[in-house]
């Protein structure tokens, strides 16, 4: 009897074990990729950041010298300011304007049409969009047309004008970023239960007050995702800048990601480039943690 009883129980426990392990097995390919491309790379970058290395000769351990140099380097400080401009621009255009458009679009009957119109730029890669915009904004593009129309002071290659070019690129990149955020906001707005809104309206809430006090708090989970994606993307801003200005002229339009690439692969200072990469990674991780901690708490 004991033997007969023990067989199904061992089968059952084996089945339970397999059931427990199975989800982890599905994760293995992703984990392997993350370990190779993220964990190993981050760990390697961390080590390199404490060295002086040109990629050809032996690494020389120099302690925190690269981190000290970073805060004394005017290029690093300027690219940090530019990164903050990108972050601010990213909050203003792809998030705030996308939210306004989403609210407007949910009130019209032809939602699908507007969704397609605003999402289309997102279908282009940032590199392709950058090339197209560079051509349009170059000397023989839109500025030339403005010159012919009599606005001669505007007939110049604006992408070569320091500081102005950063603003142009933020707007260009923002134009592309609106599409996805808009769709997410529309999905979020459509999922909000009608009851609390109707109750608020019955109690006299309307217009901006209705949105700030009722709708937007209910949209918070989607807003957090959009904010996080946009912030992380703004800290990583590279493609648009690399294609449109190459970080120039004289490094005035670089962001931290571009400075990291230039120091590591153009100036062959892989140690210094890695130090910038570490700072960038830690900044993005801290921001992500602040934004996501409430979401994780909610899930727990």
């Amino acid at each position: 009897m004991e033997i007969v009883k023990s067989k199904p129980s061992s089968k059952l426990s084996m089945k339970r074990k397999i059931e427990k392990i199975t989800p982890y097995l599905y994760l293995v390919p992703a984990v392997i990729l993350v370990v190779i491309f993220c964990i190993y790379s981050d760990f390697f970058s961390l080590i390199v950041s404490f060295t002086e290395w040109d990629g050809l000769n032996e690494m020389q351990f120099i302690g925190f010298q690269n981190y000290i140099q970073m805060f004394q380097d005017p290029n690093f400080l300027l690219s940090s300011i530019n990164t903050l401009i990108w972050v601010f621009g990213t909050l203003l255009i792809p998030v705030f304007i996308a939210l306004l458009f989403a609210i407007a679009i949910t009130h019209v009957k032809t939602q699908s049409f507007f969704k397609i119109v605003f999402y289309l730029p997102n279908a282009l890669s940032q590199t392709i969009a950058g090339i197209i915009l560079t051509t349009i904004l170059s000397t023989y593009g839109l500025p030339h047309l403005l010159g012919v129309m009599g606005f001669e002071s505007l007939a110049k290659d604006w992408l070569t004008v320091p500081y102005i070019n950063t603003l142009i690129m933020v707007v260009s990149s923002g134009w592309q970023g609106i599409g996805l955020n808009l769709i997410l906001f529309i999905v979020g707005l459509n999922q909000i239960p009608k009851e609390p809104i109707e109750a608020a309206i019955m109690e006299g809430a309307k217009g901006i007050r209705l949105y700030t006090k009722v709708v937007l708090p209910l949209l918070k989970p989607i807003m957090l995702i959009v904010l996080l994606m946009s912030l992380v993307n703004s800290f990583k801003s590279f493609d648009t800048i690399w294609v449109m200005t190459n970080g120039g002229p004289f490094r005035t339009s670089e962001t931290l990601a571009v400075t990291m690439y230039k120091e590591a692969f153009v100036n062959n200072q892989l140690g210094y480039g890695s130090a910038i990469a570490m700072l960038l990674s830690v900044t993005v991780l801290i921001i992500s943690w602040f934004l996501l901690r409430d979401t994780f708490k909610g899930e727990e």
């Binding site: 491309f37 993220c38 190993y40 790379s41 981050d42 390697f44 970058s45 390199v48 990629g55 990291m260 690439y261 590591a264 692969f265 892989l270 480039g273 890695s274 990469a277 960038l280 990674s281």
Partner: peptide, 10 residues
């Protein structure tokens, strides 16, 4: 980040 770039560049 830089080491991943190295890998991809290669």
């Amino acid at each position: 980040m830089t080491s991943t770039s190295l890998l991809l560049v290669a």
